[in-house]
Design a protein around this nucleic acid. Sequence first.
RNA 1: CGGGGCGUGGCUCAGUCCGGUAGAGCGCGUGGUUUGGGACCAUGAGAUCGGAGGUUCGAAUCCUCUCGCCCCGACCA
Length: 565
Amino acid sequence: MRVSKYVLPTLKENPSDAVVLSHRLMLRAGLMRKESAGMYAYLPLGLKVLRKVTNIVKEEMDRAGAHECLMPELTNADYWKESGRWYTMGPEMFRIEDRNGLEYALGPTHEEAFTNMVRSVVSSYRDLPLNLYQINTKFRDEIRPRFGVIRSKEFIMKDAYSFDIDQKGLDESYNAMAKAYRRIFERCGLETIPVQADSGNMGGSTSEEFMVASEIGEEILLLCEKCDYRANSEKAEYQRPPVASKPASDELKEVHTPDIKTIEDLVKFFKCDEDKFLKSIIYIADGKPLMVVVPGSREINEHKLKNYVNAVELNLASDEIVQHFTGAPFGFAGPVGLKDARVIFDISVKDLSNAFTGANKKDYHYSGVNPVRDFEIKEEADVASARSGDICPKCGASMYEKKGIEVGHIFKLGYKYTKAMNLTVLDEKGEAVTPIMGCYGIGVNRTMAAIVEQCSDERGIIWPKEVTPFHVHLVGISKTDEETKAVDDIYDKLMNAGIDVLYDDRKASPGFKFADADLIGIPLRITAGKNFFANGELEFKERSKKEINNIPSEKIIDEINNYYK
RNA sequence: CGGGGCGUGGCUCAGUCCGGUAGAGCGCGUGGUUUGGGACCAUGAGAUCGGAGGUUCGAAUCCUCUCGCCCCGACCA
């Protein structure tokens, strides 16, 4: 492709509304343009990359035995009502009506659609296992789209759904995807961190997220320094911290604390460390109140709590319930003297001593609080969020935090949709069996952005070999018509050899062309300049390296093919 | 939804406080000179100053409303 005939609107300056690296570079390199908040249009160069990523995904999904389909974007509300999600999805789902008042949603995900399709296509255990996928646009009315294509209202996702006759089959389908995902991201040139993740409401089954480490990541990961334990903070467990505190010495005393409610207030009031306070929070789990106690500096992990108490719904209790449950208004709750109430102590609480906590009485706290002595620990669990410095649940070493962009997620979904939508097949005995599902997603354009985020330097993008929009960026620096003709011949020669070439044939200064080449980031730059016109040598430069090699023009095709081998 | 910031040629921004004939750089057109890291000279085109209403002799600038965009947070999965 000749640049003079192509659409390549590179920008020298950063567009004012792009803040993060990948967003800036994708706009500046002419890959895409913003349509509107959270919606982007791909230009030819960007589309080429997107297609490369898409093809890798397809190839690896197919290799793993999945089959590609394409679902409508406009999804009938009936199926959503059948699964119940029409009522539970909330405002994240774009809902529309046709002229007759029939309801639809713009597909935010496609469990229902696939389950429905499989229902009409499959009838025997012999048709299983089945893994179907599509690469299609998803619509989500995000609360706040941001970071360009990383979180947008409309995005491209590969979503796959597996159907197996039993748990063992699901395990196999899941493992095949776990393997395929590793290959996909590796081929994309992306370093991902697979982490254990919370599987949501589906009840304790396996789930793995593929994360790209990044400062702009919206997920927090906990990684062990020694072993391979890696988990999303929603899921991450930790071990009881070593006992460092002094023995119980202080007497339990009531202290007047007028209007001192938050940990922040208390730290100021008592002038001591956050962890001297037993933070006591009241929740309602499936209609029943319970108290959770953690040290002042820790956050309660609602995902872990919800799993631990096995609740479908978990919410913070209202002020009225707090008043009723503890006998005091919000801000003065504590485990001391709380009889017959369910209190869950985080594992980090037991070894605290001479602490403070709410006295379950307006404007009063206790000082000199000592677990066991002053209250019984009937129920203890790991319900606080793990954090940097905490002890690895697996090996006992220390863990650290990293932020990550989620590019893929695989999990064992279970029977939720097959049951709700009444999908059954007949087994060997002729009895109806409900298949079990797995669900596997990849954010395709998010992956593209993550690649840019990870593969760039101060001059621009550095595309990994497998996703580069062109193989070679040919830069011609010719001064005469004869010289131009000679470079044109090289271009033709490369094209005829099946090499995808972007040929900068513009009448521009060399510096201008080099700067554009660096910005666009094609891994190989071939320059036809002085040496070429003098003695037929082309410059061979890798985008990621400094050095330039001079290659006789007759050997250039071999060199290129060798590079891409 | 709460908080903060911003809308001025295609892009980046000045001008707004303190009202008085819309600016710069980049990009673009034309002519010429250049040509190994975003060349130079000359010349030219291009703006309902986000929109509507108001105040005023006069509004990019002041007032009211409104739309859009960005950032932080909450919410949500």
